[in-house]
Every structure is written in C-alpha cells, then in structure tokens.
Simulated assay, not measured.
Amino acid sequence: MPRLLCLVVSAVLTIALAPPAAAQPDGVMTVTLVRHGESEANVAGIVATAVPGPPLTALGEQQAKAAGVLHSDPVPDAVFASPLLRTRQTAQYLADEVGEPVQIQDGLREVEGGEFEGLPVDRAVGYLDAVQAWTRGDRTARIPGSIDGDELDERFDAALGAIRSGGYTKPVVYSHGGAIVAWTLMNVHNPPVEITGLDNTGYVVVRGNPTTGWTLVDWVDRP
C-alpha cells in the first residue's frame, strides 16, 4: 500500500525492549508487525488489496532481504504473512534466514479497497477517510463496498489469537501498512501522538495478547 495510505502515528517515546520470550508471563506475546517491501502497486500509486495482488519490485526484494536479516536476531519462533503475494515474498527472506516456514493467516490481509480497488490513491479519498476515522475512535465508518473498523479489528485479533494458540511468543508477522496502523492504534494502551508514516518494511512491536490487551513497545517507520 502506498505511503499515503499508511496513516501512521509516532512519538518521542521512552520504550523498553521486549524481554526474552522465556521471561514473559504465560500467554504474553511480543509481536513484530512488518510492512511488506515496495510493490508494483506502490510504484504505480494505486489501491491494490485483492488477493494475490502485485509482486515486489526489485527494490522491494532488496528491502525484504534487509528486513529478513534485521529480524533474524533474536531468532523469532514463527514467521507469518497475509495471503497477498507481496507479504509472502517479503516474509520468505526471514523464513530462509531462521529456517522456519512462512505460515499464512488470512486475517492479516490488507484493508480491502472496495469501490476504490484499482484506482489511483489520490482518487481513493473515501478509503482514506474511513481508515482515518477508525484511528480516531469511529470504528463504524465503512469503506464503500468494503469493511468497517470493527470488522478489521475482529479478524486481525482472530489471526493473532490463532498465533497465540499455537504457543508462539515472539512471532514476526508480515502484513500491510493500512492494516498494521489501524489495528495498532485501535488496540494499544499507549498510542503515539504524532502522525508520520510507515514506510516499506517499517515495523511496529507490540506486547500482550488479545485477551488482556496490547502495549506499544517500538515503532520504526524506516528500518
């Protein structure tokens, strides 16, 4: 998804690093949510949310490789991705680094474009307006022909719940700018306060679980 769609907030935060997985209470996860590398849709500046979607560009492949190295230390206990091609391609580099398979979770997919699918970003105002409304607390705002904020939150929560049920405590999860940003701002107890952006392979780290809630640990818009 183009940078304009990534509606990210960040702030000057004093954030503690996640403790080792063994030191975490039962049921608590430290989840690293990574945006995919540059895709052909990013370059074209269009809304492309349908599966399988466009692939990574050559630059996107380079970004994905660098992200794979970055997130391989400490070694995650699982690698997950949305069903879209660009996230699966990005995740594969980390999977190869740590010797884990890429596991697909449908609930991690991008916010569907609805009536704006395939249109230039500058003509997708209704899409942007709805996602921005979710981050301000109005989860009932619906993208024409698509979902509202409650539906996004429910399916993303379900995906993280399934990951937790698998016994994973430090997964790396590859998703999309709009989905990561909207879900994070709707769920963390300590949301940041200044709007910037989440670039390709930028990432967010949260700690907690779907039952007790989430705390923002780190937000890196440009790794």
Rank of each mutant, 00 (worst) to 15 (best):
M1D: 13
P2Y: 02
P2T: 15
R3Y: 08
S10Q: 14
A11N: 13
L17V: 05
P19D: 01
P20V: 01
A21C: 00
A22W: 07
Q24I: 04
P25L: 13
D26T: 12
D26W: 08
D26C: 04
D26M: 10
V28S: 02
T30P: 04
L33P: 00
V34Y: 08
G37R: 08
N42W: 00
G45K: 14
G45N: 06
G45H: 02
I46E: 03
A48I: 07
V51R: 09
P52A: 10
P54Q: 13
P54C: 05
P54F: 06
P55H: 03
A58L: 12
A58Y: 06
L59I: 11
L59G: 03
Q63W: 03
K65A: 15
A66K: 14
G68F: 03
P76Q: 04
P76G: 11
F80W: 08
L84H: 06
L84E: 15
L85W: 00
R86A: 05
R86V: 09
T87D: 07
T90C: 10
T90H: 06
Y93W: 13
D96M: 07
E97A: 15
G99I: 07
Q105S: 07
R109E: 13
R109V: 07
E112F: 12
E112C: 03
E112I: 09
E112W: 12
G113A: 06
G114D: 09
E115Q: 14
V121P: 03
R123Y: 01
V125K: 13
L128P: 00
Q132I: 08
W134N: 11
W134K: 05
W134G: 13
G137C: 07
A141M: 09
I143W: 00
G145W: 08
G145H: 02
S146W: 00
D148M: 03
G149P: 07
D150T: 13
D150L: 10
D150Q: 12
E151H: 00
E151Q: 15
D153G: 07
R155F: 09
F156D: 05
A159D: 10
Y168Q: 10
V173Q: 06
S175R: 02
G177Q: 12
G178I: 02
V181G: 15
V181T: 15
A182S: 15
L185V: 08
L185C: 05
L185A: 09
M186N: 11
M186F: 04
V188T: 03
H189N: 14
N190D: 15
N190L: 06
P191I: 07
P191V: 11
I195F: 14
I195M: 13
L198M: 13
T201I: 09
G202Q: 09
V204N: 04
V205S: 01
V206C: 01
V206P: 05
R207M: 14
N209G: 10
N209W: 10
T215R: 11
L216I: 12
L216S: 10
L216Y: 05
V217R: 12
D218M: 07
W219M: 13
W219R: 11
D221V: 09
R222K: 15
R222L: 14
R222A: 14
P223M: 14
